[in-house]
Nucleic acid binder design. Structure first.
Lengths: 364, 364
DNA sequence: ATGAAAGCGCTAACAG
DNA sequence: CTGTTAGCGCTTTCAT
């Protein structure tokens, strides 16, 4: 007696064919916009489909179709919720939409365990390609995919153990420029504030920081080289701790959007935002309206997403391309906090030339 | 001679069965964790599957399985890129992950045309349910889905023409409280800054604003009741225009995250952020660190997402539930900008009691 | 405990 | 131009 259906009931092509009084293949032709159907039948089929509220089943079709494409790709991000990830997501979506490809996005929260689960899930859904941000040191679990011919592009962080295309920001360069900027403004006691050392971007940024200090023959004491911070709150506390300790830094370099916010908070809480300089890595909305405005090295996550998507499409089309790591430039955006003069501001003209180790002239 | 495959090549169950020397059904049993397989065969199958790098094809299975579920839901958002939408997305994902359900998120950019495309796309992929944010006045295109038994929940904005469950914020209440807050601080010339009037949330917020003004017997001149603004930049310009005109508002009420940022910018550009009051609708990161801090009515988009997801799961499970609109409270967060005293601050005790029209005592 | 056969909804490959 | 048949990869059904 009960008419309650346990699951939504979709009409089938066979039912549409029956109602229209035609063969199934004719229905398939009409609904897929194929040629060789008379206007009359076309009309009848459309009418029947509408009457039955028919919707094509893309997966049933794909099953039979040669080289079965699902017209879906998998996108693994740190978190769909993080503005940086979300911008990548939008960039990917924008490009994929032009090709009627759907984006399956999943957060993996920097958890290597979840990383495998998510990828496995994508594969079981037979996505046509993968765009991945990862933390795993060991990406051997992907080598099977290489053999199979799955198209994969890494975004934000390059692949480690296997050779895939990658699209990344110029992390090293950005960090180096930020560091030089602080040095040129007379700072010598700089502090590095960073996240998980497992993450490639962090290591690159730290390398840029230390390299530049090295060129200036400056040591960074361990107390001013803090990594492993998990978020805004930890960065805030770390900044407070540093500034409470003897010989505090005169300039701070937080190297991730969440950490930038944490450090800004600490400086404002102590009311030293006009005395202690800072340059952040990653731009965050409203940073320009703070007093002082916060100088940052800005990335272009939307562009990262677009490029990764375009690269993936090329791979999926089996274009013969060399393996490549595309690098998206970073930009120093000066707003005040990074231009607060340090104790050595007067000596600026006398600093070692920032080129080559130990002050050697470039090209020597 | 060429071995280059045009598409990734996945091993089939049949191949695994052949290699393991068993029947296909046995492979199916093992790989789906079904009982009634001897340890010996189980072991052999797993070995063969690993050797062939086999991955289950969820869609092929679902085709035959009764009540075929895809374990995917469709989530339509304004933009995956908008922090508000992204927080909803994360809330939905968090809940769905616990049920091994994947979220297919798509941006529709407040475009009614795209709205239909996206929903159609979801249906063709046979998602198990839909969580939708919409602009369309006419949602008749969904009535077919009701008939079919598709589970649908609306989030952020309720369904208009058809009866579905909805999960929304207390927009009216929030706007009313924000308005009262400004009035109680001595402001009488308030300005409303809003987006697309098509959008329900905007209309609710405007209604809350005008209702409260009405209780205080205050008129809002058309020049101070601006809607249809498309983003940060338009809001910024609108605020500038208002403040340039005669009889400028002494307090401004931008009613959306993008618009809040635009107005804040305008106030800072003119250097009047300490003279002109403002209360925003929607919280935005770093608003608390501005000078003055920006008072807002905060929503809880993550919670909206969680509730919508839970409701959808209940619907998908065919639980017998009444149609319902769940309301998530909004919170006034005072930070300074909303507490700037207005010209009538001294009269605060003499204002009409803010209850009932025309100052009538409540309950009369 | 195991597997052969049928069939999910669709399209490829052929007839007519 | 139109329709029939087979079969995509899997699970159901039902023997063994």
């Amino acid at each position: 007696m009960s008419n309650r259906l346990e699951a939504p009931r979709y009409a089938t092509m066979r039912e549409v064919a029956a109602l229209a009084g035609v063969g199934v293949k004719t229905v398939s032709r009409v609904l897929n916009g194929e040629p060789n159907v008379s206007d009359q039948l076309r009309e009848r089929v459309n009418r029947a489909a509408a009457a039955l509220n028919y919707e094509l089943n893309v997966y049933a079709g794909g099953l039979r179709r040669a080289g079965a494409r699902t017209n879906a790709i998998g996108l693994m991000l740190e978190s769909v919720d993080n503005p940086f990830s979300a911008a990548i997501h939008r960039g990917v979506e924008t490009v994929m939409r032009r090709h009627s490809i759907v984006v399956l996005a999943e957060s993996f929260d920097e958890d290597p365990g979840r990383e495998r689960t998510v990828v496995k899930d994508f594969l079981r859904r037979r996505v046509d390609g993968l765009i991945l941000t990862t933390v795993s040191r060991d990406q051997a679990y992907l080598s099977a995919e290489v053999a199979r011919g799955t198209s994969i592009v890494f975004v934000d962080r390059p692949a480690v153990s296997v050779a895939f295309d990658s699209v990344v920001s110029c992390n090293f360069d950005g960090a180096l420029i930020a560091t030089r900027h602080m040095l040129q403004h007379g700072h010598r006691r700089l502090a590095f504030i960073g996240g998980n050392q497992q993450i490639w971007t962090l290591r690159e940024r730290r390398r840029g920081f230390l390299d530049e200090l090295d060129r200036w023959n400056i040591e960074c004491p361990p107390a001013h080289d803090v990594t492993g911070l998990l978020g805004e709150e930890e960065a805030r506390l770390a900044a407070h701790a540093m500034l409470d300790a003897p010989d505090p830094p005169t300039a701070i370099f937080p190297t991730q959007n969440r950490l930038v916010v944490g450090v800004v908070r600490a400086l404002h809480e102590r009311g030293v935002q006009h005395r202690v300089a800072m340059v952040g890595f990653d731009d965050v909305e409203l940073l320009d309206l703070l007093d002082p405005g916060v100088t940052v090295v800005a990335q272009n996550p939307h562009r990262l997403g677009e490029l990764a998507a375009e690269r993936l499409l090329a791979r999926m089309a089996r274009k013969p391309l060399e393996l490549e790591t595309l690098r998206v430039p970073t930009t120093l955006v000066t707003r005040g906090s990074g231009e607060i003069p340090g104790p050595h501001a007067a000596e600026v003209v006398n600093i070692p030339r920032p080129m080559g180790k130990a002050g050697r002239p470039s090209g020597a």
